[in-house]
Structures are given as C-alpha cells and as structure tokens.
Design a protein around this nucleic acid. Structure first.
Length: 116
DNA sequence: CGATTGACGTACG
DNA sequence: TCGTACGCCAATC
C-alpha cells in the first residue's frame, strides 16, 4: 500500500489553504505564498495551483492573490474581464487599471501574519 | 515523447 | 539603478 502522494498535490493544496486564509480587504502575492511554502522561486507554481481554483472546494478566493506589483495578473484567467477587479473592490480594495492601490496597506503576508 | 509555455520572482551584469 | 537571463515544475501542444 503505497501512498504515492505527489508533491505537487501537497503544494497545490497548501496554496489553496493559505489563499483561503486571506482575510477580506487584503491581498497577497504569489511569491509571498511561495516563500511561505519554502519555494520562493516557484512562484509560478502558485499561479498554476490557483489555476484550479474553480476546480476545488470550497472555492478559493484567488482574486485576492496578485503579482508582486499588485497587478491583477489572473484577471483574464478568472473568467471574464472585470470579475477579479469587481470582487476586490467589493471587499474594499481599491483597484485602478487592474492594479491594486494601497497595495502596501492591503498586502497580507503569510510569513508575517501567520508568523511562521 | 520532447519542446514550449505559463496567474512570477530572484539573481546577475 | 535598470535591464536581461534564468529558475520552478507542471500542463499543454
């Protein structure tokens, strides 16, 4: 009985867990999550993990995850244009030109907030 | 089966 | 300080 558990499975799941922990009105970056997982250079995989946000339950608030510049890099992937932006604004986050304003204030770092 | 891309970020020149 | 190159690892072509 081999529990051949894929690493990616853990990584993906872990990304979902952390993303779900993001409070409303707050956003985080792929690199922050990746770094929290110990794979700072695997920020891309975080994006891939969030790629299945609509494939798992409960639904992961991937709209709260943006790139390092606060740019809504996953807007197009989220579905239709404006969906991600609307959700962020609805949570109190100011978004301008697909860019999160006050990113420094709404930035939620798992390494700090979760005090790893 | 091999090569390229992809929701990014860091390292180096 | 800014620009370019590379790395990550999986999925897709």
């Amino acid at each position: 009985m081999s529990f051949s558990k894929k690493q990616s499975t853990d990584f993906f799941d872990l990304v979902y867990q952390v993303t779900r922990l993001i409070p409303q009105g707050r956003v985080t970056s792929y690199g922050a999550i990746a770094r929290y997982l110990g794979t700072a250079r695997s920020a891309r995989m975080v994006g891939w993990a969030l790629n299945g946000c609509g494939n798992i339950k409960p639904k992961v608030p991937a709209h709260r995850v943006v790139n390092r510049m606060g740019l809504l890099s996953g807007q197009m992937h989220f579905g239709k244009s404006g969906t991600m932006k609307s959700l962020l604004e609805k949570e109190g986050i100011r978004v301008k030109s697909n860019c999160v304003q006050n990113f420094n204030k709404v930035f939620w770092d798992p390494n700090i907030e979760l005090a790893l």
